[in-house]
Nucleic acid binder design. Structure first.
Length: 597
RNA sequence: GAUCUCGUAGCUCAGUUGGAUAGAGCAUCUGCCUUCUAAGCAGACGGUCAGGGGUUCGAAUCCCUUCGGGAUCACCA
């Protein structure tokens, strides 16, 4: 049984036996003892003093004595201003550590004991390359998926690619007009970059034409509607929907370039998907379902033929689902996608959509619609919303060229990492290839940790000029500590053979060792909490605290140089376990560890 | 205008269901490498937890209100 429940039960018994009242569980408040006081866990006495009708300090003393007498895990206590601080016996910590040492998957639930969860993330449009905002999305979604898995769920990672619509037609049109048959091979450009380039070209041309129209006396609204290129793009979309062979094959060709580019980026990011959905496969299904819903009377038709849903009873608005010309909208395809997923994975318990917080309203509406259509799964759809990544000058805007390109940033991180590593010069003996691998991993650790350590719901700031730190509360700092643990273990094994998984040490334990054990003790709780709240930042911050504690230990006490054999082994075991928990935590964040740096 | 969300040190962020004297990193300053990797450790400096009111034995945390930033409220995606 967990020590916290042991203590809670003990306090309950104490109150009942001392004061004859069974206390409500909410009155038993246990927390970790603050550093400046002696003890490991603290009982907040104030609520219990109401039952005892004695002063908090008297009550604390009485409960403390009771626990000392009845629980062998408690070896001492003190009462300070209404707080009962309990000291836990070393035998409890050592026993815990012995169990943890034997549990390779310490803190992890057995995979698959909980129901299947679908996690959607990434979900790019095919007309633009990936940028920093996507990185936050992708790292967040991937990490949440890993965390849920560690909490015992089966998980499928999916993404929906918005591969159809006016946006890709714009790129296609510009390529037809100005591309001269350019391909990724002929230009040396990554496929997504090439297609993105023509999207920008389109926009330039479009703006020029609008300006001419405005100069000729049109309003800006009129100009936006009548510029020749936009009309051409719309025509292209209609041809596409009619599956015009020429248009369709161009669309297929350009999208395939984009996917090749995306896949190269995903590989660098070290993420993967179990299934990819395409809007072009789901929008017709969505249309059908909307029409079906209108026929059933779940939705209603306006005079012009457009189809709407009325959500005013749910506190929302009316929302269009199908245009008067019968074409699909953004939400139409989302309905279709959800449907397809329910069919593909009927055993799914939760569906998690990792999408930015600007779409909160959209998902509220979507889930209500699915519910109205009679899908019970709608109750188990969850919008994992996250804040924007802002630049010092505000939001990233592609039109103003202030987007931070994902590939560029990843490359930049690797470069910085190389520079720092060269200065340190600790990688002698590795081949150039191995070194580049290390630089890459360190760079990705810096980037991923930077984006994941912040609470997802908050907007966060990225300052390109300052680049991402490698010291302090950062990925590389944590990696560095991991590498230290690895070096110690290597040397220990060279000299003394394999490390035992049984903890035979009987104490004493010094304060820093105890802090480390207590931190390790927290790991399963943190993992559970981060799973319940879909929040990787809890893992990130936990890992940082663990590593801080270890560095302090490493600095103050000899490990390999410890002469007492039993103590040396204990400290090496502690080192090993810290290293493993760091590595596993980083896995949950989607970060790979390195052996040297 | 309505709804949602955020506001904690110069900057970037932590702060578990309300608990003790609000914590880290960066930046600035000071020590510590012939001993397990100094991308480290230890210390100093730095706060009206946006302002005001309320609930409570106790509030950064809950409620009300004002101010400030962001987002959303399309037959755009």
């Amino acid at each position: 049984m967990n020590i916290l429940s042991v203590l809670a039960n003990g306090v309950t018994e104490a109150v009942q036996s001392l004061y004859g009242v069974l206390p409500d569980p909410s009155l038993i408040q246990l927390q970790k003892t603050r550093k400046e006081f002696k003890g490991n866990f603290t009982v907040v006495v104030f609520p219990l003093a109401k039952i005892s009708k004695l002063s908090p300090d008297q009550t604390g003393e009485a409960i403390g004595s009771f626990l000392l007498e009845h629980l062998n895990q408690v070896k001492g206590f003190n009462v300070v201003k209404g707080f009962l601080n309990l000291e836990i016996a070393e035998s409890y910590w050592l026993d815990f550590f012995d169990k943890a040492m034997q549990d390779e998957e310490f803190g992890f639930e057995k995979k698959g004991i909980k129901p299947l969860v679908m996690v959607e993330f990434a979900s790019p449009n095919t007309n633009k390359p990936l940028h920093l905002g996507h990185l936050r999305n992708i790292f967040l979604g991937y990490s949440v998926s890993k965390i849920l898995e560690a909490n015992g769920h089966s998980v499928v990672n999916v993404q929906i690619i918005n591969d159809r619509g006016i946006h890709i037609c714009k790129s296609m049109l510009a390529w037809m007009k100005m591309g001269n048959g350019e391909t990724p091979e002929s230009s040396g450009l990554k496929g997504d970059k090439l297609v993105g380039k023509y999207y920008v070209e389109f926009d330039k041309l479009y703006k020029e034409q609008q300006k001419q129209l405005i100069d000729a006396g049109r309003t800006s609204e009129e100009a936006a509607k009548m510029a020749p290129v936009i009309l051409e793009a719309q025509e292209l979309l209609i041809k596409w929907e009619a599956k015009d062979p020429e248009v369709y094959s161009l669309w297929e060709k350009m999208n395939s370039w984009v996917y090749e580019g995306f896949n190269a980026s995903f590989e660098k990011m070290e993420v993967s998907f179990d299934k990819v959905y395409f809007e072009s496969d789901t929008y017709l299904l969505g249309k059908e379902e909307v029409i079906h819903g209108a026929d059933k009377g779940v939705f209603f038709r306006k005079e012009d033929g457009s189809i709407w849903v009325d959500l005013t009873n749910e506190g929302l608005d009316q929302k269009a689902l199908l245009r008067k010309d019968g074409t699909a909208m953004y939400i139409t395809q989302d309905i279709g996608t959800a449907l397809l997923r329910f069919r593909d994975f009927p055993e799914t318990s939760y569906q998690i959509y990792t999408v930015g917080n600007e779409q909160e309203y959209h998902f509220k509406v979507l889930f209500k619609i699915l519910k109205k259509l009679g899908f019970d799964q709608a109750d188990k759809c969850y919008h994992l919303s996250y804040g924007m990544v802002e630049l010092p000058e505000g939001k990233m805007k592609s039109r103003e060229g202030t987007v931070v390109d994902a590939d560029d940033l990843m490359l930049e991180m690797q470069n910085v990492s190389r520079e720092v590593a060269m200065e340190q010069g600790k990688l002698e003996g590795l081949t150039e290839n191995e070194k580049e691998g290390v630089y890459h991993y360190i760079g990705m650790a810096a980037l991923k940790y930077f984006l994941l350590k912040v609470d997802p719901i908050k907007n966060m700031l990225f300052n390109p000029k300052e680049s991402i730190d490698f010291a302090g509360n950062t990925g590389p700092f944590i990696l560095y500590t991991y590498v230290r643990t690895r070096a110690i273990l290597r040397k220990f094994e060279e000299n003394f053979g394999p490390i035992s998984r049984r903890v035979d040490y009987n104490g004493p334990i010094n304060e820093v060792e105890l802090n480390l054990l207590a931190k390790l003790h927290d790991f399963p709780l943190v993992l559970k909490e981060s799973g319940n709240t879909y929040n990787p930042s809890l893992i990130a911050n936990y890992t940082y605290e663990l590593v801080k504690e270890f560095n302090s230990f490493y600095h103050d006490f000899p490990i390999l140089r410890e002469e007492n054999k039993d103590l040396r082994t204990f400290r090496v075991q502690l080192t090993q376990k810290v290293g493993l928990v760091v590595r596993n935590s980083f896995k949950l964040l989607g970060i790979n560890t390195v052996e040297r740096m």
